[in-house]
């Protein structure tokens, strides 16, 4: 149920768009109104979410320290895992963002035990899968920029050339398409495994199916239901310059692709995909380990009821006298 429902939701959306365009000629709805609507809502939602995060304060200084602190000068401290400088924090956060350092951390005792054999650990697999997925997603997004920019910057063209370097077929297969398909299949199938299945929610499958749908429609568009790339670009430039126009030459698959991307965009602010922004704000990662060097202020701090020394001395006066402990009063 947790898996089937999201699958049908995504296929349903794709089917509605496909039929809508193919049979009822609803290009206007799915090609223009839907993207605009989704984009605006997503933008508002995204900003609102960031503001809500940023508006809630960080009352306490709670970095998770993963290395030797800076204390005595002759002890070598860990600059990144226990950062005391802004640069250290920057490296730490960038390490998380670019290389998923914490996921990589699964330092296994592979060589221990009598046999001293190497054992493949599933979590390194997760690290590889996640890294491949995110990096190639970036490549694909950058490649798509050629449809959004005029003139197309030369580095995008080089990137595209590099990506399609193995031109064995016509049109060439993009390396990124291959790897992102593989990695998303991995990310999906690992959720079917027992332990991860237990913790997975329909939303987790929904996103994977949605991304899968986008990738699939994109690949289909490139290799089977070919569309004229110039038409596509003209259409997108029309959207960007607020002069939207329906282009007849674009097949239904294009609208499916565009529609699914729009839905994804709309969904971002309401989903775990916000981790793309949240990772920068995580207080266990973006704070320095300097809480004894510099006072951290809690903006909502309030006075609390304490047991003062005077009250305490009054209560235990006799006992203190008996013990010969000096009194204040």
């Amino acid at each position: 149920m947790k898996i089937i429902l999201p699958f049908f939701a995504v296929s349903g959306i794709a089917a509605v768009i496909y039929i809508g365009v193919k049979v009822y000629n609803l290009q206007l709805v799915f090609g223009i109104i839907l993207p605009y609507l989704c984009f605006i809502l997503a933008l508002v939602g995204f900003i609102a979410r960031i503001i809500r995060w940023a508006a809630s304060p960080v009352p306490f200084h709670i970095p998770t320290v993963c290395g030797q602190q800076r204390s005595l000068p002759w002890i070598r401290s860990s600059k990144i895992d226990s950062p005391v400088t802004g640069l250290g924090v920057l490296f730490r956060v960038l390490g998380e963002v670019l290389f998923f350092r914490s996921l990589f951390r699964n330092d296994r005792a592979n060589l221990y035990g009598e046999q001293k054999r190497i054992i493949y650990s599933s979590d390194k697999l997760l690290w590889v899968g996640a890294l491949l997925f995110h990096w190639f997603l970036l490549v694909i997004i950058l490649r798509h920029l050629r449809l959004f920019l005029e003139p197309v910057p030369s580095w995008i063209i080089s990137l595209q050339g590099l990506d399609g370097i193995f031109e064995t077929t016509m049109p060439g297969v993009y390396i990124s398409n291959v790897f992102i398909s593989l990695s998303i299949l991995y990310l999906l199938f690992r959720r079917f495994r027992s332990r991860i299945r237990y913790i997975s929610l329909p939303a987790d499958y929904f996103i994977l199916f949605l991304l899968g749908g986008i990738i699939l429609s994109g690949i289909l568009m490139r290799h089977i239901y070919r569309i004229d790339i110039l038409d596509a670009k003209a259409f997108i430039m029309g959207l960007i310059y607020l002069k939207p126009m329906v282009h007849e030459g674009l097949g239904a698959m294009f609208y499916v692709h565009l529609g699914l991307v729009s839905i994804l965009t709309l969904y971002i602010p309401h989903s775990k995909l916000m981790h793309m922004a949240g990772v920068f704000l995580s207080p266990t990662r973006n704070l320095k380990n300097n809480s004894r060097m510099k006072r951290h202020i809690n903006p909502w701090d309030y006075p609390v009821k304490v047991h003062t020394y005077e009250e305490w001395e009054d209560e235990f006066k006799d006992a203190l006298k008996e013990a010969g402990i000096p009194l204040d009063r």
């Binding site: 027992s194 332990r195 237990y198 913790i199």
Partner: peptide
């Protein structure tokens, strides 16, 4: 054990 733990 529960399946999730068993696999682990």
């Amino acid at each position: 054990y529960p399946p999730d733990a068993a696999v682990f």
